[in-house]
Every structure is written in C-alpha cells, then in structure tokens.
C-alpha cells in the first residue's frame, strides 16, 4: 500500500514535468504576426516568450538575441544558420530572437531575412520593460547584444559575446 502511494507520487511528478514541457510549447501565443514576402515573424511579449527558455525535452536549443542594426550580431548570424543546417537532424533547434523595433519589422527585418535567406526560426521579442525581463533571461546579462543561450532540458549556458563558427559549435557540443 505504501509503495503504491509513493509510486503514485512519483508518477504525478513525472507526468506533470512532461506535461508542463508540452503545455509550455503550445501555450506560447503571439501578440501579433507580421507577414510579408512569404515570411512570417511572430511577435511575443516576454511572458509568452519565457517558456521557450525552459522547454524540457531532449532537443538542444540555441537561442540568439540579435537585431538587424547590431553589426556584430549580423556578422555572426551565418554561423547560427550553419548550425541550423548541420544540426537540425541531430535534434538541435536554432531560434533567432530579433530585438528590432516593431515599427521596423516590415521595413528592415523582413527584407533582411529575405535577402540573407535566413532559414532558422525567427521571432520578435517586443517587451519594452526590459529591466524586468533581462534578469529573467540571465542575471549576468547587461542587456547588450549579441547574447546567446544554448540549453537542453535544465542544463545550459548563457553567453554575452560574439561567436566564430568554431566556438559556437564547441559550445553546442558541451550541451549534447
């Protein structure tokens, strides 16, 4: 009898964790979706976006904070694209989180994505109260971009820096 109760307890816990992971994925709702030239860019506030930082499945997620006006970000973007090309089959997902101004999505961001033929998933994080959400991404983050998170389940690393392809791949392999 005792065993049964304990078993039930564990199962609930695991069920809940598993369920939470799935629920988090589906619960992310965009406040708006920009669409032009066949490219869609969903917009999230931090409350909805945050779930993307805590998905508990066996995928490795590479989340890069960038913007079209940020030169070092644009310079390293091809390396993230290459990771996306080479590692998607190995259960890696690259998410490019643009911090462009919403007013510049149609004039700058989408034309940029089209011209550079960006194939990774691109979303826009639009939440002006950054002082509240920056520490929730990482306590040490000053708010400067580029910044990157590489995580799988509950293990991961945060980087406030630029990458070369070699470095990015090296950091990615640490999380595998």
């Amino acid at each position: 009898m005792m065993c049964r109760i304990i078993c039930m307890g564990f199962m609930l816990l695991i069920f809940f964790t598993g369920c939470k992971g799935e629920r988090q994925v589906t619960a992310i709702t965009a406040t708006k979706v920009f669409e032009s030239k066949g490219i869609e860019v969903p917009v999230y506030d931090f409350e909805n976006f945050e779930a993307l930082l805590h998905i508990d499945d066996d995928k490795v997620r590479v989340i890069n904070f960038w913007a079209t006006w940020c030169k070092p970000c644009v310079r390293e973007l091809p390396y993230f694209e290459l990771i996306n090309d080479r590692y998607t089959a190995k259960n890696v997902e690259v998410i490019l989180v643009s911090l462009d101004l919403p007013s510049q999505v149609e004039t700058k961001l989408i034309p940029f994505l089209e011209k550079q033929r960006i194939r990774s998933r691109v979303i826009l994080l639009d939440d002006p109260n950054a002082n509240q959400w920056i520490p929730k991404v990482n306590e040490e983050w000053s708010g400067a971009i580029p910044a990157t998170i590489i995580y799988k389940g509950s293990t991961g690393n945060f980087y406030e820096r630029s990458f070369t392809y070699h470095d990015l791949e090296k950091e990615l392999k640490k999380v595998f």
Binding site: L99, A130, N131, I134, P135, G143, A144, I145
Partner: peptide
C-alpha cells in the same frame, strides 16, 4: 541599478 537592451559598444 537597472538593465535595458542596447547596442553593444564597439
């Protein structure tokens, strides 16, 4: 002390 998104100083 507050934080904000900004452009990295180059």
């Amino acid at each position: 002390h507050t934080k904000a998104i900004g452009c990295s100083i180059k």
